[in-house]
């Protein structure tokens, strides 16, 4: 190996190539729709984080004499709800609970589901069969039904609602993780890594994770909107957040009786859920195309 040993350590400036994440950012910024969605998501997250500073009024304080005022009432730009509480303040503060219930279950499910799915995909064989068939059992139930049934069985409450949502989201994430990992495992560079004599753990760390986490994460992002809608549904059924805590799903529920009196005010929480989930979906969609290397 004369060439190798005689080669002096070269102190040359290595021409920096655009890193992977920088190129993702560049492609993402080109996508106008995705950028707009990202701005909306950011605004909602900021509003939720600083809700108590932004909210113009106390979201819990109601007055019976100013119930169900229409949109544009002086002092109450988005009207008031059935107990006379300021809708704008409640919607801003409600974003906290809705986001929390939308994001937390997905994050936890992303962690657990990725580990299971990557292990199943990489190990293969009977382990794969065992994991995937177990996951299939959960697929027998529609996700709404599963969430409601689990929540009902566990009992009402914020923690139980999030736990049941987590259980609902693990199977789809396992499936995606398994599919992507199986695909990556068959690539020649993984075969080359096996031919290098590296241990399975090293191969997963260096060659598999970087190539599968991206797609799994993007898929998980798209579940946030589903999670928010399901969480709203659970609150609507009285299984999630409890009154008087503001949460969009719960607000939709309590305001439904007012649908003939103040339809626009009653529709506001629904509109918030709609806009937020659409924004998350478009954001994850843009992220997915930006992460496609060959583009």
């Amino acid at each position: 190996m004369s060439v190798l040993t005689s080669a002096r350590p070269q102190v040359v400036a290595i021409e920096a190539s655009e890193g992977y994440w920088r190129s993702v950012l560049r492609r993402f910024l080109k996508d106008k729709v995705a950028v707009a969605a990202a701005i909306v998501v950011l605004a909602i997250v900021l509003a939720a984080l600083f809700a108590h500073w932004i909210a113009p009024m106390d979201p819990y304080a109601g007055r019976t004499f100013r119930r169900l005022r229409p949109i544009g009432t002086e002092g109450f730009p988005l009207g008031t709800d059935e107990l006379g509480r300021d809708m704008l303040s409640r919607l801003i503060v409600g974003a906290r609970m809705s986001l929390l219930m939308g994001v937390t279950p997905v994050l936890i499910a992303f962690g657990i589901g990725s580990v299971l799915g990557i292990a199943a995909g990489f190990i293969g064989g009977w382990f794969n069969t065992a994991v995937m068939r177990t996951v299939d059992v959960f697929y027998a139930f529609p996700s709404v039904l599963l969430a409601v049934a689990l929540s009902g069985a566990l009992g009402a409450g914020l923690g139980n609602a999030m736990l049941s949502l987590t259980i609902v989201f693990i199977p789809p994430i396992v499936r995606v993780a398994e599919a992507v990992t199986t695909q990556v495992r068959a690539r020649d560079y993984v075969e080359a890594a096996r031919a290098s004599g590296a241990s399975a753990l090293t191969i997963v760390r260096v060659h598999v994770l970087g190539n599968v986490l991206g797609p799994i994460f993007v898929y998980a992002t798209s579940l946030i909107s589903v999670s928010m809608i399901l969480a709203s549904g659970l609150s609507f059924l009285g299984l999630g957040v409890r009154p008087p805590e503001p949460e969009w799903g719960l607000m939709l529920n309590t305001l439904r009786t007012a649908i003939y009196v103040q339809p626009w005010v009653a529709a506001l929480p629904g509109l918030c859920i709609f806009v937020t989930s659409i924004a998350f979906n478009m954001f994850s969609d843009g992220l997915r195309s930006a992460m496609d290397v060959k583009a």
């Binding site: 190539s17 992977y20 690539r187 020649d188 560079y189 075969e191 080359a192 890594a193 031919a195 260096v206 060659h207 970087g210 190539n211 290397v293």
Partner: peptide
């Protein structure tokens, strides 16, 4: 004992320099 495969692109991890 090492091997070089036919597909030069698939043989390299796209995320590594």
């Amino acid at each position: 004992a090492q091997i070089v495969f036919q597909d030069s692109y698939a043989s390299l991890n796209p995320r590594l320099t």
